[in-house]
Amino acid sequence: MIKALLLCLAAFSVCSWAQTSKPHFVAKPSDKSVLGSQRNSNKLKQVKSDPNQVYHYQNADGVVVFSDRPPETGHYQVRIYDCYACKPSSNINWQSIPLFTQQYNDDIRLAARTYQLEAALIRAVIHAESSFRPAAISKTGAQGLMQLMPATAKELGVTDAFKPSQNIQAGSRYLAQLLKRFDGDITLACAAYNAGASRVEQYRGVPPFPETKAYVERVNILLQRYRKS
């Protein structure tokens, strides 16, 4: 299983920049990477292997290891080979998955006020993009809470995409630009955030990518839930 995943990783790295017009989505499995650590060996017994993710870390001898289980101690990265909110076959119940209602309150409120956005929408996009993981990074290079591509981040004046305050401000500004471009249509703006504005314009609506369709549907579910929270 790990050998197959490594082969997929190698193949994906060759084509990861093939469609730069898509800021957040490539029509192949994406790679979300999240820093973590494991200090208690008892916790290891509770972690089941997951064929959809690989734990990447260095062992005591300094050798890089790829495994379907986390190390007993030390830091590691979790590489998930599917977009968090756009995997069509996801078994997550988006109607009941726990929400992040308190995280980054000040930053989200400031961004919402600055760019005249609903705080609930910003939260929904962050949840869909990174599940509120500030260290998340995709194989295509998208970074941080709102998964900004480096070129987009640079255009928006970001100096550290992993700093929540900068990422939320820039991601919200970009989302506001997309909403303006698509006349306030949240569905189209979110589709553009995921697949690229040019794709939305090309297809005159949500692009026919299963991942983008799933992403848009789930952002809307999360939006409705965050509005009520």
Rank of each mutant, 00 (worst) to 15 (best):
T187N: 06
N42Y: 11
L110S: 12
K32M: 09
A119P: 05
Y104N: 05
A60M: 11
R123A: 03
T101W: 04
A128C: 05
E129N: 07
Q46S: 13
T20W: 10
T212N: 05
D61I: 05
Q46P: 08
N42W: 08
E217C: 04
R225S: 06
A119F: 02
K139V: 05
N91T: 15
S96G: 15
A4S: 15
Q19M: 02
A120I: 08
L156P: 03
G184T: 03
Q53W: 04
K22Q: 07
G196K: 02
I122S: 07
K32W: 10
S30E: 14
A135V: 13
H127L: 02
D82S: 14
P71T: 06
K45L: 14
V200F: 02
Q202G: 04
L44Q: 12
A128N: 02
L6P: 02
K32S: 10
V26C: 13
N105D: 15
Q169E: 13
H24E: 07
N40A: 08
G205E: 04
S138Y: 09
I108K: 04
A10N: 06
K43S: 09
K154Y: 10
A214W: 09
Q147I: 09
P98A: 04
S33F: 08
A10H: 05
S13E: 10
Y76A: 06
N194T: 07
V14N: 11
Q102L: 03
D106L: 13
Y193H: 11
G141H: 02
Q102A: 05
R109L: 15
N91L: 15
L99T: 09
G196C: 05
I221W: 00
K228I: 13
S165C: 05
H24L: 08
I108G: 03
L178A: 09
A4F: 12
A151E: 12
M146H: 07
G171H: 05
K180I: 09
N93R: 04
R181N: 07
V200D: 01
L121H: 07
A195S: 12
G196W: 02
F100W: 10
G36R: 02
G141L: 03
F100K: 14
L148F: 05
F12N: 11
L222R: 00
R181V: 03
R113K: 12
L5W: 15
S21A: 08
I221Y: 01
V125W: 01
L148K: 02
V34N: 09
F162G: 01
Y55C: 07
A192V: 00
S96K: 15
P208D: 03
S90W: 00
K87R: 14
A142F: 00
A214G: 11
C15N: 14
K32E: 12
P51S: 15
T140P: 08
D183A: 09
N105E: 15
S30N: 13
